[in-house]
Amino acid sequence: MFAYISRRILYAVPILIGVNLLTFALYFLVNSPDDMARMHLGAKYVTQQSIDKWKSQRGYDKPLFYNEKQTGLKAITDTIFYSKSVRLFVFDFGNSDNGRNIGEDVYQRMWPSLAYALPVFILGMFTAICFALLLVFFRSTYVDLMGVVLSVVMMSISAIIYIIAGQYLVGKVLLLVPISGYAPGISAIKFLILPVIIGVIAGLGASARWYRTIFLEEINRDYVRTARAKGLSELRVLFAHVLKNAMIPILTGAVVAIPLLFMGSLLMESFFGIPGLGSYTIDAIQGQDFAIVRAMVFLGSVLYILGLVMTDISYTLVDPRVRLN
């Protein structure tokens, strides 16, 4: 097991190197630091001096790969590639373009993100499974048909519409909860309740339909027939037998998303003013802070790869038939 996990982690290293090189190419080869400086300072009427000053303040004034002025190891370490890209591997994100330490910001902001994303993840899965089981219980009746149509309708509505409509109705017309904002600790609940509900509803259509097909595939299996032949009620067959077996593909499919919960949600956070990593990224995009965007891309892929490794492990835990090789 240990050997298997370490092999999987080693396999992730070249992928991370690939991600790193890709973002480096996007930000330093396609667009030179001069381009970025000009963009930041306003495209026209910028003197070379102010560009140079902008670059040296942020450490972009070094050579890309090899510094001829330095000797020894310094020739490689005193470059943009080393200081901006290689340092990411030890989670040293450096400073953002306006001088704040990205690592500290990330550490502070991942908790609100998690406070939003975790309830959405759990509640969303729970409601979708209940809804799907209900449809399967009434399969090939009008209830099922209406349910599937309803899911397709819900899938066809943009997440932004859910947010705007929810915010408008609950926050502005009914005045039940604050429209946006955040408070640390237990009082966060009143700010989080609306985004969580909207997040759950927005995702319900697609996942309920997906779970329904999983349940329907399961319901034609032999063990279901055996359970029915024993004289178990349909409800019991569904909840005790089908649900248990269908949970294997559902849970293992969901594991990959767990580490990414730390990243929160770009849309929800910025709409509801939750100070998490999602709104951090949006702010960076709108302020064109490339250092933060690069850090977030790297962090996102690390978490995704972590999710992949966890998925593999969960397969081996859940299904003993999966061999570790």
């Binding site: 990224t281 996102g300 892929s301 992949l308």
Partner: peptide, 8 residues
């Protein structure tokens, strides 16, 4: 490519 979250 897949390991970078799509939107990012």
């Amino acid at each position: 490519l897949n390991s970078i979250p799509g939107i990012l």
